[in-house]
Amino acid sequence: MTFKTRLMAAATALMTLPLMASADTIAIITPSHDNPFFKAEADGAAAKAEELGYETMVLVHDDDANKQSELFDSAIAAGVVAIILDNAGADASVAAVQKAKDADIPSFLIDREITETGVAVSQIVSNNYQGAQLGAEEFVALMGEEGKYAELVGKESDTNAGIRSQGYHDVIDQYPELEMVAQQTANWSQTEAFTVMESMLQANPDIKGVISGNDTMAMGAWAALEAAGRTDVIVVGFDGSNDVRDSILAGGIKATVLQPAYAQAQMAVMQADQFLKTGSTGLDEKQLMDCVLVNGDNAGQLETFALQ
């Protein structure tokens, strides 16, 4: 069974249930589950699919468009009825999704957009810009609308890094007494953020706040601030991870912004189900999902990228 071998090779991980789609199978393809955010997506989609009576094929593309293309070939060959995708590149993914469409397999995208419409059935995307504005509004209020701050930016190649930074500045730059004294990437990485924060602090000891493009970098920055005895510094993150929730509850990091990853993945599966049964989702292709501010008031309700 050659395609089976190929499938095994292509999908280095996380295959649940059959390779040959005996019952109706939905493929769930995301970036690596090393980041709990993507794991939450895959878990949410799989749980909903199983609840609706589908079998699932869970695959990871590791942000590699070539690998993603191979995974699509495998899923198509396996005869899946639909594909749930958090894609590996806005431009590069169009061809893969088109390939599935040509094979009459509808794709439902989550988290990240692709650059064309009319190829996927749904694109359900977190409104990162709106979320960043929420985080920035909270940051501005915590800062009392004045003082020096630093920004940790995400990985340059990820569009969401730029979107969040722009969203932050759209709000913060309207406050002339807030002064950005440092802005640097820490590539979404906790360890890198620790080092970057250390040097930022050295160069700008009078810093009052840090706004971070995601939660892992916020955690790294907070660790560095703690180590330097600077727990007075206001830190705001983005994602709504359990780590930052715990920090907020312990009086550390002040706020984050929840991307409803779990719910978003479930919504995509429900739309796939609707589409398979009726031929239409009844909804626009591109759907934005609002993010939610998480601070001391509601952090206790946060669990695995969902507010309970």
Binding site: E113, T117, V125, N127, Y129, Q130, Q133, Q166, D284, L288
Partner: peptide, 10 residues
Amino acid sequence: DDFRDQIEYA
């Protein structure tokens, strides 16, 4: 749907 992306929309 009429916008390039969420940034233009924002």
